[in-house]
Nucleic acid binder design. Structure first.
Lengths: 152, 152
DNA sequence: TAGATAAGTTAGCCATGTCTAACTTTGTAC
DNA sequence: GTACAAAGTTAGACATGGCTAACTTATCTA
């Protein structure tokens, strides 16, 4: 666990943590990065299927701000991971696992955005920051956000 | 800008954003990833200098949970970026630019941790989540966190 | 139904960030 | 002052996630 907080020289003193705990934290962040792409893709695919009727690479590329070959490559990885189902040159569908993941991500995304908005942050910033923050919000923290949202 | 929120079928409806705004958001996240390592390193180096008197690769490796060669490689990049000063086989020092960045990062880190703690989240989780979240918190959001902290 | 255009893929490049194995340097303890 | 252990570096591999250029497939339209 963590040691006690130190003397309080500064307004918010750094919590002095055990090296392994700190290393674990960074490992968690690195792991989160690896799943971010999968999460962003399934989230976006679910969104596109809902709003557009289907998810096409060209649209995914546009929304993510990347080029089509990047999408092709990443979709293959998603397929290998069992998250999407698809034939070459056709639209992209989510497997059950993909849909479950999308559901979790979209819900988490909405909670984070709503929470930021509740702090008085403007929509554009809330969406922008949520995009990055959401992947690093643990279940515990997400619950805290929801608790705060409900008690308002 | 964003369109208006839609019908509200779900508890938190997804905000329907223009594709370019969304793409910008993802681009911002990708950019943030590129500076994360630099930020983590200078933050940690500043911390080690303060608490241990000097920053050594072996300790950085231990704290970040990576192997020494990884640290060597990343420190070279930091040196190339003008953030650290150092001779091979000797301790690592921050340049003025590195110190400025460290200061900003440490302050942001402390605010994020304090904010999470203020939501009733336990220390270990707060530290862990902050490690990932801090790199994606814009100035606007950081201010909102501080405002909230001060008004308690 | 033939061509043109748009969409999608493949191939191959690059940078990042991790690793292991092997080597060099530093510092210390006799 | 030498030898050994610890710290640090170098070399080289690998996966990820971008890109461009060139090719293939699908679609639409005249």
């Amino acid at each position: 666990m963590t040691k006690l907080q130190s003397q309080g020289r500064e307004p918010f003193e750094a919590v002095d943590r055990a090296p392994e705990a700190q290393a674990d934290g960074f490992a968690t962040v690195r792991q989160a990065h690896e799943s971010e792409i999968a999460e962003d893709y399934v989230e976006l695919i679910a969104e596109l299927i809902e709003t557009r009727g289907e998810a096409r690479p060209v649209e995914i590329a546009e929304r993510l701000g990347v080029k089509p070959p990047t999408v092709t490559k990443n979709i293959s990885r998603l397929k290998a991971a069992g998250l999407v189902r698809r034939e070459p040159y056709r639209a992209i569908f989510l497997t059950d696992a993909g849909q479950d993941l999308a559901e979790i991500c979209r819900r988490r995304h909405r909670v984070v955005v709503a929470f930021l908005l509740s702090l008085g942050i403007d929509k554009e910033t809330a969406e922008r920051d949520a995009e990055g923050i959401e992947h690093h919000v643990s279940g515990t923290t997400l619950e805290a956000f929801e608790r705060r949202l409900n008690q308002k």
